[in-house]
Amino acid sequence: MDTHMKASRRQFMQHTATGLALAGFGHSTWAQQSPLEMTRIVVGFAAGGTIDLAARRVAEKLHPGYAKVAVVENKSGAGGQIAVLSVKSAAPDGATILITPTSPLSLHRYTYKTLPYDPVNDVVPVSGAAMFDYALAVGPLVPASVKTVADFLQWCRAEPAKANFGSAGAGSAANLIGVGLGKAGRADLRHVGFRGSQPAILDMIGGQIAAVVGPTGEFMPNVKAGKCRLLATSGLARGKFTPDTPTLVEQGFKSLNHVGWFGFYVPAKTSPETIRRLNSGIAAALAAPDVIESLASVYMEPMPTSADRLGEMLKTETLFWEALVKTVGYTIEG
């Protein structure tokens, strides 16, 4: 775990810069080949969230060079597992693409008794997509006097019946961060799973649950509207887009330092040539100024990578989550 904890945003940005530099080189190659009739990008979470936005912006750029028609399908449930299962079962012809956070492919092997797919062999990496910080937000159920993570944990201990948090699903990275926070702060912080961060946030701002852990960008419209407030972000340093929000590390929770990211994958047995062509298309999409601006609007930064590099990053993530699950003593779901 130590190696992962010391990894900084700078390392992520180095790989991003390389990917963006190669985008122009690859674009002419993939655009000259005959496009597919149709491609679909499968998202394992509800429409309206940050991963959904990233998928839609890339889909727009894959048309018409990679495919004549490019659509996004939301297949939410089981913390993203339904989407992985859907892509696993698709033809390995480049027409079905998965965009997913790392959890279903790295963390879930340690937080579920069984998985309906092999996270190593049923889908293969294509390219990184975007990176982001997680955040802890609280809603109107939590008093305005709660301004720090320590304040929140103290309130949880004083109000055990209200001490809960939501996330995009049981076994997700956000779930583990929340569990880790409760353990470190000696508070019985109960988890409530949802089919995506947005449904969880709706319950939080409605006063049904106290807090939500999720990608920072998921919260910001409601933060700006005064409906919820951020207590912390998860990166090693304060986020590029949230310089006024202290990190969990700053507030004493060093073991919860984590930069989240999404990646693109395709079914196993997809040809290397198809993967290279799709990788070039994704890199070109993520290099487009309007896509960079759109990602920034939801507090994300583009993260194109080679397929090999994405595979290496996923292995590192898997080791990180294995260690954290053991540290917090997470209870395996069904």
Rank of each mutant, 00 (worst) to 15 (best):
Met5Pro: 00
Ser8Glu: 11
Met13Asn: 12
His15Gln: 14
His15Lys: 10
Ala17Thr: 11
Ser34Met: 13
Leu36Arg: 15
Glu37Phe: 01
Gly49His: 05
Gly49Met: 09
Ile51Phe: 02
Leu53Val: 15
His63Ala: 12
Lys68Gln: 15
Lys68Val: 14
Gly79Glu: 02
Ile82Gly: 02
Ala83Lys: 01
Lys88Val: 11
Gly94Phe: 04
Ile97Cys: 03
Ser103Ile: 01
Leu105Phe: 00
Tyr117His: 12
Gly128Phe: 02
Val138Leu: 02
Val138Ile: 14
Asp151Leu: 07
Phe152Trp: 07
Gln154Trp: 00
Cys156Met: 06
Ala158Val: 04
Ala158Tyr: 02
Asn164Gly: 03
Phe165Thr: 08
Gly166Glu: 09
Ser167Thr: 15
Ala168Ile: 08
Gly171Trp: 07
Ala174Val: 06
Val179His: 10
Gly185Cys: 09
His191Tyr: 08
Ser197Pro: 06
Ile205Pro: 03
Ala211Glu: 06
Ala211Val: 05
Pro215Ser: 14
Gly217Trp: 06
Phe219Ala: 04
Val223Glu: 11
Lys224Ser: 15
Leu236Asp: 10
Ala237Arg: 12
Pro243Thr: 07
Leu248Cys: 11
Gln251Gly: 01
Ser255Glu: 15
His258Ser: 01
Ser271Gln: 03
Ile275Met: 02
Ile275Phe: 03
Leu278Glu: 06
Gly281Pro: 02
Ser294Glu: 12
Ser294His: 05
Glu301Ala: 10
Asp308Asn: 13
Leu314Thr: 12
Glu317Cys: 03
Leu319His: 11
Trp321Cys: 00
Glu322His: 11
Ala323Glu: 14
Lys326Met: 08
